[in-house]
Design a protein around this nucleic acid. Structure first.
Lengths: 342, 342
DNA sequence: CTGTTAGCGCTTTCAC
DNA sequence: GTGAAAGCGCTAACAG
């Protein structure tokens, strides 16, 4: 382990003071452009890399953003993270990512770790069973910006980034009604979470507008796992009248349902039409293709990171409670198209 | 932003020297157990949190591990990361995760960022088109431990963690042969990558052992995307004789193939049997269920992180080139079982 | 067992 | 435009 080059080494070599080197390297206006060039190239030549810790220690900030998400294994989340990573890289921030695995307990632990790591800001999409924001209070009290995306928690001092889940739920349901469905089952997640509560609201609104009854027996709250899909189909078969439409707020679970329904002898969409949510690639590998709602993951990640960084740079008022709503659209694909490319 | 409590504050309050506080807090053996307790509880009471930067600056290490992976959006990768996170948390390390998105260029940029962030060690699964390890030389030269997992690069100074891909490829193929398949198509990824090269070798070995011809027309190298699945099926239909077995080294792509084959009127597994790879949940949502090879993601993540940390703690020789091979098994599921639970 | 002391490498007033 | 100097908070010799 050879020792590192410091600004002192550069200073000595160039007969400048360390202060000048520091300023030049951080592009301070009070340094002559030509000396900046000289210093930069010498730094390069000597293989200098700045010591973030010394800098952090001195400046009392870490240039690090924490991210807490329920899980990484969805197309949406990995796109969102790619978006954040892009913005973070461009602006000189590092990302620390951790999964809550849908558990508040883990989420609390993650929050503490992030706090102890002194992240400059935190991006969060909460777990299924998170109740309240007490575990984020340390951030709020210290004025560390906290921003929620996708699964958000309402709070006066935090920005939230979401899609219009009510509208999306409405459109998904309206699509099924348009296909002739009159009894539409809705399989969704924990209603504590805005995403599921809002979609349910959209579902109900669509039914009402068409004069269809809102039947609580047709609303099933689950964890949206594959097992939940199995359970959902079992429930459906237990009803006196089978539904002829199914709106599941997660593609993976929706696809599981489709598969089981087909096995049980129903044909899709004739006997029962299905709509999913998230535009996950899995929606395209089943027959027929699953109609789903597009989720702008990358965009959401970029905007979340950018907003947080704007906060950090004082370009945005931390106190302002604003909710940013991204556009998302219903996607209807037709399997038959798949093989018809040139 | 209230000012932070430091060990000096605790020292003053308790009439100890800062050194004692520091030692007590890091559980130094030369401090009386009872004073440790006193100090710990006072630290707690005063809301002290240690300043990592000062500590890092002083100790010349970051307690941070970098992770570079191709993509996050697979069940395997998210499990592997959960495993790493667990080990890292338990041992007081932080994780910085970044995606190369299957591009060497991005991988290089990520490596540089990690280097500049002075990670103590690096865990890498390389991109599709990575060629050589030059972009990791800075790590090797500085003696920063570098460990590859899953998609590994052979190198004298690095440990690698893999499954026995040859064996897995062999078993997948043998299974198909046992089902009566004689013409088995193999759809795989870039053969630069050990995982694909090894599985191919297993495939060929199985064929040879059964006296079946190894036909290059039946081997298709792709990027294993869904489009690749479309292309693969097209290729198959172009052959004079349709294969009656298909071994795809990625569940998602395999499932796409199944779907298209069914659309084209083939029945599975009667006309053509399919085996995938990774044990991704997607293998269970199609009919019939896809036979696949289990991938011990979480385990691989834990072992990778643990080995790296052992290196860091000097418990393991950095120079020793060892390859750790994890067990993985062929998984055969039967859809019919799904609904037969109690 | 505990205290003293000297930095780790950088930024930033305050001078000139 | 550039320099001098004082720490940021912590750890690790070295003493005692």
């Amino acid at each position: 382990m050879k020792k590192e080059v410091t600004i002192y080494d550069i200073a000595k070599r160039l007969n400048y003071s360390p202060a000048t080197i520091s300023r030049a390297l951080s592009d301070h206006p009070a340094i002559r452009p030509d000396t900046k060039v000289i210093i930069a190239s010498m730094a390069q030549e000597m293989g200098y890399r700045s010591n973030t810790f010394a800098s952090n220690l001195r400046r009392q900030r870490t240039n690090t953003i924490g991210v807490i998400v329920p899980r990484l294994n969805s197309n949406f989340m990995s796109s969102a993270l790619a978006g954040m990573e892009k913005v973070a890289n461009e602006t000189g921030y590092n990302l620390i990512i951790s999964q809550s695995l849908e558990s508040v307990t883990k989420e609390k632990a993650n929050a503490k770790t992030m706090y102890d790591s002194r992240v400059d800001g935190l991006l969060v999409s909460v777990a299924y069973d998170t109740d309240g924001i007490d575990h984020f209070n340390s951030f709020i009290n210290k004025g560390i910006p906290l921003l929620f995306f996708d699964r958000v928690l309402p709070h006066d001092h935090c920005t939230s980034i979401v899609i219009d889940n009510v509208k999306a739920g409405y459109e998904a349901t309206a699509h099924l009604i348009q296909q002739g469905c009159r009894r539409i089952m809705h399989v969704t997640g924990n209603l504590k979470r805005n995403v599921y509560a809002d979609r349910l609201q959209g579902y109900q609104q669509a039914l009402r507008e068409q004069g269809l009854p809102v039947n609580d027996d047709l609303i099933l709250v689950t964890d949206l796992s594959q097992e939940a899909g199995v359970e959902a189909v079992r429930q459906m078969q237990r009803l006196k009248t089978m539904p002829n439409g199914l709106f599941v707020t997660n593609d993976f679970c929706a696809v599981t349902c489709m598969s089981l329904l087909k096995q049980a002898g129903f044909s899709i969409p004739q006997d029962i039409a299905v709509v999913g949510f998230n535009d996950d690639p899995v929606s395209q590998v089943v027959t027929p293709d699953l109609t789903t709602v597009h989720y702008p993951g990358r965009e959401m990640g970029e905007i979340a990171a950018q907003s947080l960084i704007n906060h950090l740079n004082g370009l945005m008022d931390i106190q302002s409670t604003n909710t940013i709503i991204l556009r998302s659209d219903l996607i209807i694909r037709h399997s038959s198209q798949k093989l018809v490319e040139p």
